[in-house]
């Protein structure tokens, strides 16, 4: 069962600002239930690893500043609320284009255009976001497929994806049908995500597993594997709407699934935790997890995103503290 790992990529990008997409897209594979059927995940051991992964590594001073700058580049700056308006989305996009005050950018010596990784909105807001981000290079991500519960007819799910892509979304965050996982109906899950991937065309697909609904880490692992086999470019923890959102143990299991899938197929799949990531410290924790379990490549937006709305404000404050040595306040930084 264990295929030889395939070395695909060359050296890391020379310029941190420009992160060229040199990686082949995950094309997916036929469903191989035998790849994960016997998978074992020990909850207590996963929790212990997750609890200590952040106590084993620390970044300080310049390194911490650099990691926080990178965290900004990894953010899918998100608004997914019923009261979203086009103006609200435009404000968010403005923050995505310029996430950090100019004086701080200068003080940090950043000689490239710093933006967030993407902006993530509902499909109806894609046109507004695309307009607001024109020329910035910041992609628009749209949730789709009956987000967050995913319980609309399949035909409409695919239609929703096609709409968002047509309106200019470069990334589509789909939700899976949780019952397929709870029923262990892997064929149905594979077919579903495969069809969604086809509907995405060139847009990248992030498969939201809604891990809070899946309950067990074994389910998380298996659903991760099936989503990757179905061609997901990213696997993502949560919609932000479940009772339990991104946690480090769940992320650890998903990262290990990505590692195993890579060993089996040679494809690199990205990871996106979302929901509840609010502080700079949280961001560093997830980044450490990525670096330790998957390697430094997973500290690039191409393979790692942080789904967050409030996180950026805390990072802004921490970076100002790094620059000035004084603790900062919210009102000194532009809101999203």
């Amino acid at each position: 069962m264990a295929a030889e790992p395939v070395q695909i990529r060359g050296a890391a990008p020379a310029d941190a600002a420009a992160l060229p997409n040199v990686r082949p897209r995950n094309e997916g594979t036929p469903l191989h239930v035998e790849w994960f059927d016997a998978a074992r995940v020990n909850l207590s051991a996963a929790e212990r690893r997750a609890a200590t992964i952040t106590t084993r590594r620390t970044v300080k001073k310049e390194w911490q500043a650099a990691w926080l700058v990178r965290a900004i580049q990894l953010i899918d700056l998100t608004t997914l609320a019923g009261d979203d308006t086009e103006e609200r989305v435009a404000r968010l996009c403005a923050k995505a284009r310029k996430p950090l005050r100019d004086d701080l950018v200068a003080a940090l010596g950043l000689d490239f255009s710093l933006t967030t990784g993407a902006v993530c909105v509902y499909p109806a807001m894609v046109p507004a976001a695309v307009r607001a981000l024109e020329g910035s290079g910041v992609p628009v991500a749209s949730v789709a497929t009956g987000f967050p519960a995913g319980l609309i007819p399949t035909r409409l799910k695919l239609e929703e994806i096609r709409y968002a892509v047509e309106e200019g979304a470069a990334e589509i965050d789909i939700v899976i049908t949780r019952s397929h996982v709870l029923d262990q109906n892997w064929r149905a899950l594979h077919d579903e995500v495969r069809a969604m991937r086809a509907a995405c065309g060139d847009a990248h697909l992030k498969a939201i597993l809604a891990t809070g609904d899946l309950r067990s880490l074994r389910n998380v692992y298996k659903a991760s594997m099936v989503a990757m086999m179905a061609g997901a470019d990213f696997i993502k923890t949560s919609t932000g709407k479940e009772d339990v959102n991104a946690t480090l143990p769940v992320s650890l299991v998903m990262a290990r699934a990505i590692r195993d899938y890579r060993a089996l197929t040679g494809f690199d799949v990205g990871f996106k935790p979302a929901g509840g990531i609010r502080t700079a410290k949280d961001a560093l924790a997830w980044m450490t997890l990525m670096k330790e379990e998957l390697g430094t490549d997973w500290l690039e937006p191409e393979l790692f995103r942080l789904g967050a709305s409030a996180l950026l404000g805390d990072i802004d404050r921490q970076l100002e503290h790094f620059v000035t040595g004084r603790y900062s306040a919210d009102n000194r930084h532009a809101v999203a």
Partner: peptide, 11 residues
């Protein structure tokens, strides 16, 4: 900072 961004070392 911009150099550390290339390596993403812990320091």
């Amino acid at each position: 900072v911009k150099d550390i961004l290339r390596t993403m070392d812990y320091g």
